[in-house]
Amino acid sequence: MRTPISKVRGQGSAKNGTHHFWVQRVTAVALIPLCMWFLCALMFHMGNDRAEVLAWLSQPLVAILFILLIMSGLYHLKLGLQVVIEDYVNGEGCKLFSQLAVTLGCSVIAVASLFAVLKIAL
């Protein structure tokens, strides 16, 4: 007989417990207002000339919102793609390679985007 508490103690074989589940929800909640802002911003600034976009991105509030969007978005993406790979990619080698590619790829996209925003804003 196993009680629910005995299953939860020790946090399972990965020793992470519900961390993945929880951070995915935290980033999801953060992304709701950020994505609403982003969609509105896209309507006004998509396709504008470079000078206008640079002036817009130079505003501290815009840069801060972009940084938050990039950080929570890419973290959320990494967590989501990780689960997709766990579910659909068969074969240990293939799985390991895809997980590495997702983790490193998301990091590269995040750092590149953050650097671009900071370079424009600062």
Binding site: L54, L57, F66, A112
Partner: peptide, 18 residues
């Protein structure tokens, strides 16, 4: 997954602007 591709487009746009 599509939005994952979208982040590449956004990164490209931001880097190009910079």
């Amino acid at each position: 997954v599509v939005l994952g591709v979208g982040t590449i487009a956004l990164a490209w746009w931001l880097i190009a602007a910079a």
